[in-house]
């Protein structure tokens, strides 16, 4: 057993385990490239990395609540809500004539306010009242759907200012495309919070053994609620990036994102029963999903079939999650 082996070989086994999944993604990529050489072109590689950024942010949002044994079903509709509300704020007469930086600040503030509000709502009911998180987020999912459809009248909000789309999508900073830069910042921030703060380490303990958190005198409910707020903020950042990419506030933006974010997180190795998983897992999981859907798109597989494949991936991820324990 692992306890009998020396620390060094245990470390070796851990490294091998960590690298298995990235190698699997590479193998899948190679397989796709054999069928369709254009998949391996430099242009498509850039494409994949910028496409995966959004999913990475959403997978991180899901990871932050999965670690302390929570769950967020409201993710997709929270994205729609944030997108529509931000676009409405940016195109309102109030925002007309604002200078570029003010537009960006306004968008960022509106988006974060919406996202954290949803997170706070989820966190309050899930931790203070102790309702199971996925019932709360199921309710929040419907509330967000209703709100985004009502305030937008069910139509996309056009004319998002250019300063906003440049900052979050088309611009480059020191040669790095905006989505990649912001995602890297977010990923580093989440990694620091999860690994190097008492709050982050408590989330892991909460996932493994909630009782121990209370015995240790840590504020279990407060931290659980904060995890949801943090997740809401991440959802908002992802939603802003997506809104900048489409250039409109879309009431249907969330569509498949919930399933993809869950599939990415769990496939990457974030445990459904809490306590395991981090930034690395979310990123590899998101890359897996992106490479898969990119390859299927190149091979011209119908969107309906892709939906079936996504469902199968989720079931597979669940089975893998079980086998890891």
């Amino acid at each position: 057993m692992t306890t009998a082996t020396s620390p060094r070989s245990r470390e070796f086994v851990a490294t091998v385990k960590l690298l298995t999944f990235p190698l699997l993604i590479l193998a899948m990529f190679g397989l796709f490239a054999m069928f369709e050489p254009r998949i391996a072109s430099a242009r498509n590689l850039v494409n994949i990395s910028s496409q995966s950024t959004y999913l990475i942010v959403f997978a991180l949002a899901q990871t932050v609540v999965l670690v302390p044994r929570g769950f967020d079903l409201s993710l997709g509709n929270a994205v729609s809500f944030t997108s529509v509300a931000t676009a409405l704020a940016l195109t309102s007469s109030f925002a007309a004539g604002l200078p570029g930086y003010a537009v960006v600040v306004l968008g960022l503030l509106t988006g974060l306010a919406c996202g954290t509000a949803v997170g706070l709502f989820n966190g309050f009911f899930a931790s203070v009242l102790g309702i199971r998180s996925f019932i709360v987020t199921l309710g929040a999912m419907n509330i967000c759907y209703g709100l985004s459809a009502t305030i937008s009248g069910g139509r996309p909000v056009f004319n998002v200012p250019e300063a906003f789309t440049t900052f979050f999508y088309s611009g480059t900073f020191a040669g790095i495309p905006a989505p990649i830069l912001w995602t890297a910042c977010v990923a580093i921030a989440v990694h620091v919070v999860l690994s190097n703060t008492v709050f982050g380490r408590t989330l892991y303990l909460m996932g493994c053994n909630p009782r121990a958190v209370e015995v240790a005198g840590l504020p279990r409910r407060k931290y659980f609620a904060i995890a949801f707020v943090l997740s809401g903020a991440l959802v908002a950042i992802g939603a802003l990036m997506l809104t900048a990419r489409t250039g409109t506030g879309e009431p249907n933006l969330g569509g498949n994102l919930l399933l993809q974010a869950i599939a990415a997180a769990v496939m990457g190795g974030v445990s459904l029963s809490g306590g395991r998983g981090g930034v690395f897992h979310a990123i590899t999981g998101a890359l897996f999903i992106t490479v898969l859907s990119n390859g299927l798109n190149f091979l011209q597989i119908s969107g309906y079939l892709q939906q079936i494949i996504l469902g199968l991936v989720i079931i597979l991820a669940i089975a893998l999650d079980k086998s890891r324990d």
Binding site: L259, I262, V266, L272, Q307, I308, G311, I314, I315, I318
Partner: peptide, 11 residues
């Protein structure tokens, strides 16, 4: 709900 979320996507 994880299982049924997956099967609903498939179905």
């Amino acid at each position: 709900f994880m299982v049924t979320l997956g099967t609903s996507s498939i179905v």
